[in-house]
């Protein structure tokens, strides 16, 4: 970044950034330094006016990315909400100390695009998995029993629970089933397809899983969580 850019008035930087972005969109040769300087002032100097201008400059771009993302419809909320979340993440994840790690405007905008992706994927991951009890209700006509432990489960520390589960595992087959079935929500058929060297059949995976669930349900440390 030349000293000239650092000394320019913000209005000039904003105008230049807008102008050069227009050239870029028309596939004409363009100069990234205005927009890079705008983002530098926003991120490194914490210049609120530059933040506002950068948001205005790239809001439409991020909104377009959000609308393009395959997870947008599943994430809930509206596009504007995710656009704001993407910018929040971008500002906090880049930060003054990390700005130099992005050698170009293209690298920064690519990271902004990653932020748009990651806020949507966080929301998708946080959605609860489909409860097996629903299938039970539908197929076998069995109503779900009241779930007194659900509130406890909401408060538990997932890492503590995972450590407690791991303490109950006896071999590599159980470790595989715990990770793939409980943490990654794979079915035993999918576990067998990934690890035919570890299991004799799909039924064998079901056997390991049933043993594991029985043990977890008997475990004093896990009774509240595993029913």
């Amino acid at each position: 970044m030349g000293a000239g850019f650092g000394q320019m008035a913000l209005a000039e930087i904003v105008g230049g950034c807008r102008e050069e972005t227009g050239k870029f969109l028309r596939r004409e040769p363009s100069d990234d330094r205005f927009c890079l300087e705008l983002l530098r002032r926003a991120i490194v100097e914490g210049d609120q006016a530059a933040w506002g201008a950068a948001f205005a400059q790239y809001r439409g771009l991020v909104l377009g990315w959000i609308r393009l993302h395959p997870a947008a419809s599943a994430a809930g909320e509206d596009d504007e909400y995710w656009t704001n979340r993407a910018f929040d993440r971008f500002w906090s994840a880049v930060g003054p100390e990390r700005f130099a790690a992005f050698p170009s405007l293209a690298a920064l905008l690519r990271y902004l695009k990653l932020c748009a992706h990651s806020v949507l994927l966080d929301a998708v991951r946080a959605r609860p998995p489909a409860p097996p009890e629903a299938l039970l209700d539908r197929e076998a006509g069995i109503g779900a029993a009241p779930d007194a432990a659900a509130e406890v489960l909401d408060r538990l520390d997932a890492q503590d629970l995972w450590r407690a589960v791991n303490a109950e595992l006896r071999d590599e087959a159980e470790r595989t089933v715990a990770r793939l079935c409980l943490a990654l929500d794979l079915k035993p058929r999918e576990v067998y397809e990934r690890h035919p060297e570890r299991f004799a059949s799909v039924a064998d995976v079901y056997r390991v899983k049933r043993n594991l669930l029985d043990r977890l349900r008997r475990s004093p440390a896990l009774r509240a969580f595993s029913g």
Partner: peptide
């Protein structure tokens, strides 16, 4: 139903 509840809780917490 008991298996379903166990799985449901564990999967939700360990996802």
């Amino acid at each position: 139903r008991a298996y379903a509840r166990s799985q449901d809780r564990l999967r939700a917490a360990l996802r």
